[in-house]
């Protein structure tokens, strides 16, 4: 598919026009912001005032309400970037480039926060800030990949060309992340036979699940809001670059 086929005005192609995209999604920003704020207030109220302490971990279970959503986002953001990378490579969709670039720093921050809260949760429960446990280690590697992607975006001058190259690397990373996870799990079980941390999924009582779910959606909507806002900024930044180039050409001619 070449870039200069005659544009059919279905929603997909209209979404591909950056100006149209900004115009269409700007009305979504305020509702998203309000929804996120309400979810956070509700989630924090549940987390601190309306949920019991765990019978084993005591009050430290409250760290879970910020830890798990961040850990989920660290992977969800990468999935978003991978889908956007496919959009860039397969359909050459202009907004996919923008989405990919806007998501990378957000993912890096959420991953860093997941590690930070994990360390603060680990100290009282395991007795150490850092354990070379499979899950923590692969999250650390994920953070390194995010930071590499952010550095890669900053290294390119031509953002349009950068998008396709970075999309290739994002997808290579997406293929590699399960392999890294597997290898790190193999490695850590080899070095420490007894796992210190067993996730007790379905045995969690409802009183803990409710705040967890609310916070989960709060963080997810926070990401969606910030991602959309960052995409708008990126569209404007590209227009600034275009205008600067045009002014420079006009000045020299």
């Amino acid at each position: 598919m070449t870039a200069d086929t005659e544009p059919k005005l279905n929603w997909w192609n209209r979404l591909a026009n950056p100006g149209q995209f900004v115009a269409w999604t700007t009305p979504l920003l305020w509702p998203l912001t309000i929804l996120t704020a309400v979810l956070f207030v509700l989630g924090l109220w549940f987390a601190f005032f309306n949920s019991p302490a765990d019978y084993q971990m005591g009050d430290t279970v409250r760290i879970m309400y910020v830890h798990v959503p961040n850990a989920w986002l660290s992977q969800f953001v990468y999935a978003t970037m991978s889908v956007s990378a496919l959009g860039t490579l397969v359909w050459r969709h202009p907004m996919a480039d923008v989405s990919m670039k806007a998501a990378a720093p957000l993912g890096a921050l959420f991953t860093a926060l997941a590690l930070f809260t994990g360390a603060l949760w680990g100290r009282p429960t395991w007795g150490t800030f850092w354990e070379w446990d499979g899950r923590m280690t692969s999250t650390l590697v994920l953070l390194l990949i995010y930071l590499g992607l952010v550095a890669l975006w900053r290294a390119f001058d031509d953002q349009l060309r950068a998008a396709r190259i970075i999309a290739v690397f994002t997808l290579v990373g997406a293929i590699n992340i399960p392999i890294i996870k597997f290898s790190v799990d193999w490695w850590s079980t080899l070095h420490q036979p007894a796992s210190v941390f067993r996730p007790d999924g379905p045995r969690m009582p409802g009183s803990i699940l409710v705040p967890l779910f609310v916070m989960f959606f709060a963080f997810t909507f926070l990401f969606l809001t910030l991602h959309l806002k960052a995409m708008h900024t990126e569209v404007k930044r590209r227009r600034v670059m275009t205008l600067k180039r045009r002014l420079a050409q006009g000045g020299s001619a």
Binding site: D59, T60, H67
Partner: peptide, 19 residues
Amino acid sequence: LGPHAVFIVWAYVGVALGI
């Protein structure tokens, strides 16, 4: 918040600062 209040508070403060 029990004996580990420091860790809980710092986790929330850190996340709040980051966000």
